[in-house]
C-alpha cells in the first residue's frame, strides 16, 4: 500500500465563477521510504500541492480531491483537529527560506520543545534532552550552546538544519521538503541535501522533494513528477526519465540545464511564460510554448496516459531520439518552438 495516495486533487483560488486554478486534477502516489522529486517552473503548483496535502490552504483557496489517503487513513474524512494532530507528527515539512521560517522571538530550544510538547507527553527536562539530541542528529556543531540561540544568530545553513530537526522531531513517516536548498549557498546546499538523504535512509521515511533543480532530483530521487501550470506532465523513474524523457516539456527543462549547454554561447530556454491565471489555453497547457504542437493540441487537453515505466500527458510523446511520433508533420507545422 502506498504511503500517500492522491487522486484528482484540485486547488482553486479566487471567485467561484472565474477560479484561478493552482492545481489541476493531480494524481500522485508515494511509497513508504521513497524519494519523490517534484519539479517544475515557478508557479507550476508544486508548493500549493504540498500545502493542500497538509491542509494548510486557507480560504478563499478551495481544495477538492477524490482520494487523499495517508498511510491508509482517509484525510478527507478526518476532522480539522485530527488532521492537525498529524502535522509535525506523521507528516512534516521544511520550507524554502530558513531565514524567515523560524520565529525571531524564540530560541532554538523554544521551537523544539514546543513542537515536541504538542505531540508527545513528557517532562520538560526530557524534552530538553530530546531537543539537544535532535540538534546533534542534524549535525549542528556546538549543539548545547545553539539551543539558546535566537534565529538571527544562526547562518542560513544552520537555520535549515534547525528546521530539519524540528521536522524529524516526532519521527514523521513523510517529510515534504519545499525547495530546501534554494536559498542556501552552493556549498551548504550539498551538505543539507546529504543530511536529508541520510535521515531518509536511517529512518525509512518518505521524502517528497520539491525543487526546480533537476540536478538535485537526478542525484537523489527514485521517481520524478514533472509539473506545469498545475498539471502533472510526466511521471517517470530515475534515471529513465533523464535518459528518455517522453514529454516535450521535460525535454525542454533538460535542455535548459547548464551542463547540457557546454560550449554554447547562450543557455537554451523555453520561450514564453507559464500561462497566467486567466489565460489558460483551451487545449494542452503547453501548446503555445511547444515546438511540436499540432492542431489537436490547441483544442483538446490530453489525459495522463500510462507508458512503459511511467505516465505522460501528451498526444504525441517523444520517441527515443527525442522526436515526436509525427516527425515529418511537425517540421512544417511547428512554429513557435523552443528558442535555442
Amino acid at each position: 500500500m502506498a504511503l500517500l495516495e492522491i487522486k484528482n486533487l484540485s486547488v482553486h483560488f479566487g471567485s467561484l465563477e472565474r477560479p484561478v486554478i493552482a492545481v489541476d486534477r493531480l494524481d500522485l502516489t508515494l511509497e513508504a521510504g521513497e524519494v519523490l522529486g517534484i519539479v517544475g517552473e515557478s508557479g507550476s503548483g508544486k508548493s500549493v500541492t504540498s500545502l493542500a496535502l497538509m491542509g494548510l490552504v486557507d480560504p478563499p483557496g478551495r481544495v477538492s480531491a477524490d482520494i487523499l489517503k495517508f498511510d491508509g487513513r482517509d484525510l478527507l474524512a478526518l476532522s480539522l483537529r485530527e488532521r492537525r494532530a498529524m502535522l509535525g507528527r506523521d507528516i512534516a515539512m521544511i520550507f524554502q527560506d530558513p531565514g524567515t521560517t523560524l520565529n525571531p522571538c524564540f530560541t532554538v530550544e523554544d521551537h523544539l520543545v514546543e513542537t515536541l510538547s504538542v505531540h508527545e507527553h513528557g517532562s520538560r527536562k526530557a524534552m530538553r534532552a530530546r531537543a539537544l539530541e535532535l540538534l546533534q542528529q542534524v549535525e549542528i556543531p556546538d549543539a548545547p550552546r545553539r539551543l539558546a540561540a535566537y534565529p538571527h544568530q544562526l547562518s542560513g545553513g544552520m537555520s535549515q538544519r534547525v528546521m530539519i530537526a524540528l521536522a524529524i522531531a516526532c519521527n514523521p513517516r513523510l517529510l515534504i521538503a519545499d525547495e530546501p536548498t534554494t536559498a542556501l549557498d552552493v556549498t551548504v546546499q550539498a551538505q543539507v541535501l546529504d543530511l536529508l538523504l541520510r535521515l531518509h535512509r536511517e529512518r525509512g521515511m518518505g521524502l517528497m522533494l520539491i525543487t526546480h533543480d533537476l540536478g538535485v532530483v537526478a542525484e537523489t530521487a527514485h521517481r520524478v513528477v514533472v509539473m506545469y501550470a498545475g498539471q502533472v506532465m510526466e511521471i517517470g523513474k530515475v534515471p529513465d526519465i533523464f535518459v528518455r524523457p517522453r514529454h516535450p516539456y521535460t525535454t525542454a527543462l533538460m535542455s535548459a540545464l547548464p551542463e547540457n549547454n557546454i560550449g554554447r554561447k547562450r543557455i537554451q530556454t523555453i520561450a514564453g511564460v507559464v500561462p497566467g491565471a486567466y489565460d489558460r489555453p483551451r487545449g494542452c497547457l503547453l501548446a503555445p510554448r511547444c515546438q511540436y504542437a499540432q492542431e489537436r493540441c490547441r483544442t483538446e487537453c490530453p489525459d495522463l496516459e500510462r507508458t512503459e515505466g511511467g505516465e505522460v500527458r501528451c498526444f504525441f510523446p517523444l520517441d527515443a531520439a527525442r522526436k515526436p511520433d509525427h516527425q515529418a508533420e511537425c517540421e512544417t507545422l511547428g512554429s513557435q518552438g523552443f528558442s535555442s
Binding site: 502535522l87 509535525g88 507528527r89 512534516a92 521560517t101
Partner: peptide, 11 residues
Amino acid sequence: DYVRAARARGL
C-alpha cells in the same frame, strides 16, 4: 513564513 511553519508543525 514562520506562522505557516508553525501551523505546519501541528500547533
